[in-house]
Nucleic acid binder design. Structure first.
Lengths: 334, 334
DNA sequence: TCCTAAAATGAAAACGGTTACATATTTATT
DNA sequence: AATAAATATGTAACCGTTTTCATTTTAGGA
């Protein structure tokens, strides 16, 4: 591979002049500029950006830690990130961690080993262990969606409590009083917040919280299906189910159909996230829409600001949500 | 950030010794080793991997170009890639190109600018333009799923023609003779191959190919819905629809339901890919399963072999498929 | 104890750029 | 035409590591 010295030799100038021609063309005379450009073509020069990044100490790489890109909501967030990063001149190193802590720390380590400038994660644990921490103890990181509440890192999040409350109120307004909830994984703070919002709404309507209507889940279709089956068999069956994400809701609906329960006549089903599939299932799913792409864009912007020292204290950006009422929720009958 | 020189000073040895201690501990005396390790801890040394990669000329980064991670099938392929890469000591730089050619070439350029050792793409165009090509004209690349047929690059693919033929034969065996097809984007060779397989099966059964039963699509839910609507309105309606991917099939099924067509009694629907959702829609979707994760793993392995010079001629790996019959396809009635 | 071979360590070059500083050239001013 | 100022270019240090080669130290055998 031709390097900058080959170009310099071919053009009969110094390497400094070649570098200047490429970086700040206005600082070099038109005559020289032409010579150099011709030489660049002639020798087929491509700058070794690894050398540039090493020399400058800025990689312009951002690591993104995502539990799984198979989660359709995350996929939208990532799209937003990639767009914003491209605009700001950064590359996204997307780490699909699959819950594998080796992959996680492999990528997290990229920040402490100068391979990336900062990190964004869509999960709620500190990815940096003692071996990665540097002098001042803080590596540049932004948390999106899920929240680490230690207030040390910028956060872009949703008011999950308010959103869950809004959805529960919607169900209550349709006359439902026995409302089950299928939860997300307990490890996720977001799951807890949504649970609190659900309880808020119940309390406000003077409906007693019933522990037996709380079902475990992990945000997958299969978990939704399993919970749906369990609900179908309940003796005093609830008339509505609030699922903490859309995959769960779609899985549950399938279980209800196989148990010959009609949605929403026998049981209303609500989701969370508004993934693309939700408008195309039968019946179309009532859910909470989040500005997923905007989440991603904001996270990247925050991180870049952080890297540029434009941020004093870790900000907390709360994104808006929207209740999308479709046909999977209806009036409580009987 | 402490560098190797700080460690050397702290341990009272040379930088060469520090480097050796870290890279080939056996080449250094136990006494020195302990001193150095202690110094590493004391100064909080983390090697600057940008410098290492620059120096070695090997980045151990692989760029993966994917049109959109929102495609659930791709998400599975990516998971497989990440696993294999982790095992082989490589990092995946995942580029969600969103069809944006700027993002595409931004990431493709990483290979020609020494930021990545090679590239895998899940699309069928040459991402390298004239400005990226190096001396011998070939940059290390592997094509997965979609095929560039110039035989220059290794390929890991499916016999899409055979798979589409198998699915069409399944429909024919159920008594269907009017079988519509909802295509993928025309830009995709894979789409053409599946079309040919479909025609193969028709010809073999002496069913004349009907151009009017061929509907455009782009692998999205919405395109499937649109095509499904169009099919519902056809005067001489087909009794079966073969969709070139599952998203399309799910979108089409939704359109049929809204047109009061029962699946499969009024119309059978078949997909392709076997994404997770397909087992959880109503009715569960008949489809072609591909070993998605294995695709990813194989692509990474091929690329790494290519980088290590273990490959003479561009190999073509064909992965197996499986026909998954669920409830969305049934006997042709009437 | 002395000599040789093996093992351990150090000095310095190299990777490919950028950039501060020095020097050479051009342009402007009188 | 002489001089100052502005512009253009070159020289060399530098970023943090690895690695070759030279040198020193240690171990082993006589």
């Amino acid at each position: 591979m031709a390097n900058i010295r080959d170009v310099a030799d071919s053009a009969g100038v110094s390497v400094a002049t070649v570098s200047r021609t490429l970086q700040q063309p206005e600082r070099v005379s038109p005559k020289t500029r032409n010579k150099v450009m011709a030489a660049v073509q002639a020798v087929g020069y491509k700058p070794n950006l690894m050398a540039v990044k090493f020399r400058s100490g800025k990689t312009h790489n951002l690591v993104v830690l995502v539990p799984t890109v198979a989660n359709v909501f995350f996929a939208r967030v990532i799209s937003g990130m990639q767009e914003a990063a491209a605009e700001l001149g950064y590359s996204i190193l997307l780490a699909n961690t699959l819950g594998n802590s080796e992959i996680e720390s492999h990528y997290a380590k990229m920040v402490s080993t100068s391979q990336a400038d900062g990190l964004i994660q869509l999960r709620a644990h500190n990815p940096f262990d003692a071996t990665m921490i540097n002098d001042n103890g803080l590596l540049p990181m932004v948390n999106a969606c899920e929240v680490i509440d230690d207030g040390q890192y910028p956060v872009v999040s949703l008011d999950n409590r308010a959103a869950a409350k809004a959805m529960t109120e919607h169900l209550i307004s349709l006359g439902h009083t026995r409302i089950a909830m299928i939860k997300g994984p307990n490890s996720s703070p977001l799951t807890q917040e949504r649970l609190v919002g659900y309880k808020d709404a119940l309390a406000q309507a003077n409906i007693e919280f019933d522990e037996s209507l709380l079902l475990p889940g992990d945000f997958t279709l299969q978990a939704g299906y399993n919970a749906g089956e369990a609900i179908s068999r309940l003796e005093n069956r609830p008339t509505a189910v609030f699922c903490e994400n859309d995959e769960t809701a779609i899985g549950a609906m399938q279980a209800f159909k196989q148990a010959n329960l009609h949605v929403p006549n026998d049981i209303s089903v609500a989701g969370f996230d508004d993934i693309a599939f939700s408008a195309f299932v039968d019946p179309p799913l009532t859910t909470i829409a989040q500005p997923a792409e905007e989440f991603g864009r904001t996270a990247v912007t925050l991180l870049v600001d952080l890297l540029n020292g434009k941020i004093r204290k870790a900000p907390k950006v709360i994104m808006p949500f929207e209740l999308i009422v479709r046909e999977s929720t209806g009036k409580a009958l009987g």
